[in-house]
Design a protein around this nucleic acid. Structure first.
Lengths: 163, 163, 163, 163
DNA sequence: TTTT
DNA sequence: TTTT
């Protein structure tokens, strides 16, 4: 059935890149999308939308974009639920991105930490789409440490693959 | 910023129609959107997506569509959060519908309970859009009783108006 | 860059299914999408939108849907131009569908000509997506006869493949 | 019926702003949307998509964005036809934009001709939507001269209003 | 808490 | 050249 989402917004933090047991890359990220109208108090609010992207585009996103970067997202809504440590059912809604477009790399990793970035404006023609390629099953090690402080306790297994 | 969602799916139950203190209609509903692929076990899963619609289209939806009805939704994603009774922050993602399209009224109220409905198939050219009209502030009484069993404890005030 | 289209409308005629020289299926079709508002004269108008779909979904569309069928389309806009017989440049805009959803098979071929169809309503959970599969290069013969009376003079070669 | 389009691309030239007889602003523009894949020759092609926007957002677009500017468009597809000077029917497909988002004002008028623009980056939180406001019927003079070199011979009357 |  |  039809399920299509298109968003343009800014990363609220650096993407969280991980790998499944079999080496498939997956990145979680949140984008802030400013609302086009003001609320009662005259303030512009934003929606904070959780997204996931798989495979090569996940690695590209993590490599080139960072907190504050402006990106476009084309994907679909997915819902899931899990039981938290208190035994309560938690419902999660997130966007599974088919592709992301790099619109502006403000504060991107490549500019910041990697130093000599050639500045913004160089990514806007690049778009990274999820290809139907098989898991590369490569040398990547399993996700380690980095406790997940988010509300989605993902222990990544290959069952999470979107197809 | 760009924030656009288009869905086609079935109502998981009858829409929940209420009115704000000043008489503005608002309907909450969930649609099940079947995924176009099967999971590891060969089953077709669905996403259960919470939606809201305001004013006249809310009343139309509640009047003509019911559990099982097939509808199209054009809207945007909105996020909010609240603290539940245990003092835990709960995050909610829902679609604010700009318009709904009635695609098939299977098991709709007008067919079922109201008896003499002229049958399915008669709504597919009707589309109900949120107009920018002012709250009608009419004779409607405040929403009463009907405890909200959902995860979104909405006590409706006019601050919830989407514009 | 972002380019996303979602439509729900009715086929204005049976889909036009053809095959490229190497046997890749492609179907051209037009859907009428009724506008949600009336014009000056109080009439509801429609937009007539030309679409293309490739491979297996093209065959499914041609097999199960016909003139008048209600379908959903998820795709992207594509533009091209050619010089007509009078040496004038003609500009064409069409939707390349990634997937179509069968919403209602009214007057569908399977109901009409193939006789024993089990009636409408049986396809709405089926959605046909373009897979990244290679051209099947199968037994299909080349498109024959059937002069193309449309404004798009497609002599189908594999260069028309969308990827 | 559902008809939704979302695009991100660059203006191929400055927007063409005009006014109807009764003073309603309307801007025509074309955006180039790069395709996410390469063709047989390994070149990245683009789709050139004609768009229209009405009222205040039309004026904002013409004032702040120019050839080369990156914008987002949220709208719907509209088709029309007319008979050209040779008596041939010409079919036109264009996007009627509900809102545009200013993503980057590269080469925008405000930077170029109006001199002191503070550079790019200042528009990306601004989004201009078509409000349901009545025609302002103001001091604006009728569109003059400026022969329309495009393929759409628009002589603007108020019948062109999208609602 | 889920629809066909 | 258009559908219900």
């Amino acid at each position: 059935m039809l399920n299509r989402v298109v968003l343009v917004g800014r990363l609220t933090k650096d993407p969280d890149l991980r790998y499944t047991a079999s080496g498939v890359a997956v990145a979680n990220f949140t984008i802030a999308v400013n609302r086009p109208f003001s609320n009662q108090q005259g303030e512009r609010e934003a929606d904070f939308i959780n997204c996931v992207i798989w495979r090569k585009p996940a690695e590209n996103l993590a490599n080139y974009m960072g907190k504050g970067s402006l990106i476009g997202v084309d994907g679909r809504i997915q819902t899931r639920s899990y039981d938290n440590q208190d035994g309560q059912r938690v419902y999660v809604t997130e966007i599974v991105a088919d592709s992301v477009q790099f619109l502006e790399s403000r504060n991107s990793k490549s500019n910041q930490s990697q130093g000599g970035g050639q500045g913004s404006g160089s990514y806007q023609d690049n778009q990274y789409q999820n290809q139907q390629q098989a898991p590369s099953n490569n040398q990547y090690s399993q996700p380690t440490g980095s406790p997940n402080d988010s509300m989605e306790p993902i222990d990544i297994s290959d069952d999470d693959l979107p197809f």
